[in-house]
């Protein structure tokens, strides 16, 4: 079910994380941090949850005007990088190959194993069902942030979209929830990466070389 892994340094195969993916991953990490922390600065000007503020040291921008400027600068980085990532993922087949299919039985199995602290991670070249689901959720949340963000940036130009989202304030809340989902993912993602540091190294150096480019099933080593 998984691509076989050859010895490191094989010349013919493709890396687990090809260079474009690594570059886009780290650009995205910076963009996400800019968007989340500047978004907290904007949020604090008129809170959604009464009494809930983000501490000043967590916010990017020393007050709302600069948080907004960061946010509207970071949006280009996030959106352009995100579009190229999705385009790349679709054209090369990487998204489908790595994130699909997800089987419910597999999902339940992984959850059970996780709860018993028996999570398998000897092979970092394939994602388990929970990982697949989480990556899909965070990609959808990222797309949703762009859509709800456009709605609250341009509620008159995109008034149809705003009413589809249930109005301006509801679009705002959805934008906030999207942030919370991505932030939750981010925390989990970083903690798990720190628990298996090989994955961090792989995202920097490329990771193990896959046996046969594009093959997902029963790929015998050369």
């Amino acid at each position: 079910m998984s691509a076989a892994v050859t010895a490191r340094g094989g010349r013919t195969g493709r890396r687990l994380h090809p260079l474009p993916v690594r570059i886009m991953h780290w650009i995205n990490a910076v963009a996400m941090l800019i968007m989340i922390t500047s978004g907290w600065g904007i949020y604090d000007d008129d809170v959604i949850i009464r009494g809930f503020h983000f501490a000043k040291f967590l916010r990017l921008g020393d007050w709302a005007a600069w948080s907004l400027n960061w946010h509207f600068a970071g949006m280009w980085l996030l959106a352009i990088n995100g579009l190229i990532y999705l385009g790349y993922g679709v054209v090369t087949g990487r998204l489908r190959e790595r994130l699909l299919p997800i089987r419910v039985s597999e999902l339940l199995h992984t959850v059970r194993e996780t709860l018993h602290f028996r999570l398998e991670h000897a092979d970092i070249t394939t994602y388990n069902a929970v990982q697949k689901l989480l990556y899909i959720i965070v990609i959808l949340a990222g797309i949703s942030q762009v859509v709800t963000g456009l709605a609250i940036w341009k509620p008159v130009q995109f008034s149809g979209l705003v009413s589809l989202l249930g109005g301006f304030q509801s679009a705002r809340v959805l934008h906030f929830i999207g942030m919370a989902v991505i932030f939750g993912f981010l925390v989990l993602h970083v903690v798990l990466a720190l628990l298996v540091p090989r994955t961090i190294w792989a995202m920097l150096a490329g990771g193990p070389v896959l046996a046969r480019p594009g093959s997902r099933a029963k790929a015998p080593g050369p």
Binding site: I42, D45, D46, I48, A64, L68, F168
Partner: peptide, 10 residues
């Protein structure tokens, strides 16, 4: 019409 403040309220 709706008045929308840069802070977020309307």
């Amino acid at each position: 019409i709706k008045h929308i403040c840069v802070e977020g309220w309307s």
